[in-house]
């Protein structure tokens, strides 16, 4: 039988010394402009938690994309640049090449990285730039109102595929993460998610590696983070995460795709 437990009051528990989770200081006080339930906020938070834990705020330079996260620099309390659509890996290259001791990362959506910026993505990966790419995949163009993205699944509806993506007409959903893993310039390639506590813990570890590996100068770290776009998918946030588990993740399975060789 369970022993009789002392039942603490809220006043007992809510004390400074008992605080076990707080918003990282490296997120600004600005309220995210993202839709309720959108995973961008979690991804932002994890990156800033890692920068805080590694104590590299004074060496971190981030590149925001064009897309929903175009204003990422409003939330991350580090030096940032805002790129033209798809060109973030080129900016990152320019920064890292001229300042090799910095921790440089791009934060890009699927339209930005896998459609208009495909060339910049592939070549930054292939050159083995010592930067991190955080690739947020929600299978849709969020900011412009839910149009088809290169990552939109077959038969998935969007505002430009209102009857579902027809592969014959629109081509196949692009697994660009698997593609860049084939390039010798990538050092670490992984696909993560942030919709469940366990996934968030793993995603943070992956983000941390992507920062730490920059010191090794062995190539580019590419971390895909799958998130829901509940507005674009036209679902409630919790339902969107469930739909993601059932439909999106089977096509884009989570886990490491390329890990550094152990010697």
């Amino acid at each position: 039988m369970a022993e009789q437990q002392q039942q603490l009051t809220s006043e007992d528990i809510i004390q400074e010394e008992n605080l076990v989770f707080d918003r990282t200081q490296l997120l600004t006080d600005n309220v995210f402009h993202y839709c309720p339930g959108c995973g961008h906020g979690v991804a932002h938070r994890l990156i800033m938690e890692v920068v805080e834990e590694l104590e590299v705020q004074d060496k971190a330079i981030g590149i925001a994309p064009v897309g929903c996260s175009v204003l990422a620099y409003n939330y991350m309390d580090i030096d940032m640049q805002e790129a033209a659509h798809g060109r973030a890996p080129a900016l990152a290259t320019g920064i890292k090449r001229t300042m090799p001791d910095k921790y440089v990362f791009t934060y890009q959506g699927d339209g930005d990285l896998a459609a208009i910026g495909t060339a910049e993505t592939i070549h930054a990966c292939n050159r083995g730039e010592n930067v991190a790419i955080f690739f947020i995949n929600n299978g849709i163009y969020g900011m412009t109102g839910g149009q088809m993205a290169p990552t939109t699944l077959e038969k998935m509806k969007s505002s430009t595929t209102p009857y579902g993506r027809n592969i014959k007409q629109m081509g196949n959903p692009l697994k660009i993460t698997e593609l860049v893993a084939e390039l010798p310039g990538t050092y670490y390639v992984t696909r993560q998610a942030v919709h469940k506590p366990g996934a968030v813990r793993k995603a943070k570890k992956a983000i941390k590696k992507a920062f730490e590996y920059q010191k090794l100068e062995k190539g580019l770290s590419f971390v895909e983070i799958v998130i829901n776009c509940n507005s674009g998918w036209k679902m409630e946030p919790v339902d969107a995460n469930k739909w993601m588990d059932e439909n999106f993740l089977p096509y884009y399975p989570l886990g490491d795709i390329k890990v550094p060789e152990k010697k």
């Binding site: 790129a83 060109r87 080129a90 900016l91 320019g94 920064i95 001229t98 060339a119 910049e120």
Partner: peptide, 26 residues
């Protein structure tokens, strides 16, 4: 001085953007 042959003119001007944003003479 860094020298890099980019994959395109688009990439090269955006490498300039990044480095110039960090105060570099490029």
């Amino acid at each position: 001085m860094v020298l890099l042959q980019a994959e395109s003119e688009l990439a090269s001007i955006n490498m300039i953007y990044g480095a110039a944003g960090s105060g570099k003479k490029v």
